[in-house]
């Protein structure tokens, strides 16, 4: 187990290095000079000297290989460079915003799992019935509705029906749990709806598959209640492929959070990324991309470990 984990952790290095090289070169080969955009933001005419000085300050005057070297060496120590726009360390920019985004992601996952598992199971057990049909249309709608619009509808509903708005400004959970939850529950709900639609679809198809297995027939032949057959035998086995989807969707949550944070005015990673993309802030984009890649490989490892823990047939190799 320990050697397996060590091996997997070592195998992450080439993947992460690949991401690092790819994002670095993609951002450099193309036009768009951040320095020019930044200095002439308010329409001012900028002298050549000012441009050169700013480039030197950001390290953009060095040869590409040196820039890459600096960045890669920094990566190994967790130093992601400084934002080209605000000049604050990228690490700090990310670290101050990560708790908020992580909490929303976690809450959304809990919501999604609690909604999707019963939904998918019911849909599969009553396959072809009106219930199945309704649930399938609901999940399809959940996939079609853009999360930023859903967020706006939630705000509008709270405002028009209850004359209430989520509090402004984020408070850490341990400082003010009520203010924290009453702010973050809404984006979590919005993200959770789409998330649960994806998970419910997976759960439905894997329950359908599992119900045709021999061991289900055996369980029924033993005279077990259908309830026990479903809960102990079908759902447990159907969980495996579902866990993969839950994990991968978790790694992809930042995609949905990019727009949802904007709607709810949350200062999280998603919003930071929007600013970075709008400002051509290369170091910040690189830093967040590396964070997403790191989350993705960690989640994949976690899925594989969970598989082995839940299914005794799978062994660590």
């Amino acid at each position: 187990m320990v050697t397996y984990l060590l091996k997997r952790l070592l195998l992450m290095i080439p993947t992460l290095l690949g991401v690092a090289l790819l994002v670095f070169f993609m951002l450099r080969v193309l036009p768009g000079d951040i320095v020019e955009i930044k200095l002439s933001a308010d329409g001012a005419v900028v002298s050549q000297q000012a441009l050169e000085a700013e480039r030197a300050r950001l390290g953009l005057d060095k040869p590409l290989a040196a820039q890459l070297g600096d960045w890669l060496v920094g990566l190994t120590t967790g130093d992601l460079g400084r934002s080209m726009w605000t000049n604050r360390p990228v690490y700090d920019e990310i670290a101050t915003r990560l708790p908020l985004t992580f909490q929303v992601a976690l809450m959304a996952t809990v919501i999604a799992v609690f909604v999707a598992l019963p939904m998918g199971t019911l849909s599969a057990l009553y396959r072809g019935s009106w219930l199945d049909y309704t649930l399938r249309i609901v999940t399809m709608a959940g996939l079609a509705v853009p999360s930023f619009w859903l967020g706006m509808l939630v705000i509008m509903m709270l405002l028009l029906w209850f004359d209430w708005l989520p509090p402004l400004g984020y408070k850490p959970f341990w400082e003010d749990p009520i203010a924290n939850i009453s702010l973050l529950i809404w984006p979590a709900l919005v993200i959770g709806i789409r998330y649960s639609a994806v998970v419910a679809r997976m759960m439905r198809s894997s329950i359908i598959e599992v119900m045709q297995e021999d061991y289900i027939r055996t369980a029924r032949a033993k005279g077990l209640f259908e309830r026990v057959v479903v809960a102990r035998h079908a759902m447990r086995n159907a969980m495996l492929p579902t866990i993969t989807v839950v994990g991968l969707e978790f790694a992809f949550l930042l995609g949905g959070l990019v727009v949802t944070e904007q709607v709810f005015n949350l200062n999280g990673i998603g919003r930071l990324f929007v600013q970075a993309a709008a400002n051509n802030d290369f170091t910040l984009i690189q830093g967040i991309v590396m964070l997403i890649a790191l989350i993705f490989v960690m989640i994949n490892l976690l899925i594989d470990v969970l598989y082995a823990l839940l299914d005794p047939r799978i062994r660590f190799q």
Partner: peptide, 24 residues
Amino acid sequence: QRLIDILLSFPIIILAMVMVAILG
């Protein structure tokens, strides 16, 4: 396939936003 593996590890909106930043 290794290149595709890397690209598939990102949500598509993140990739699109990086592209917007690059392409203008």
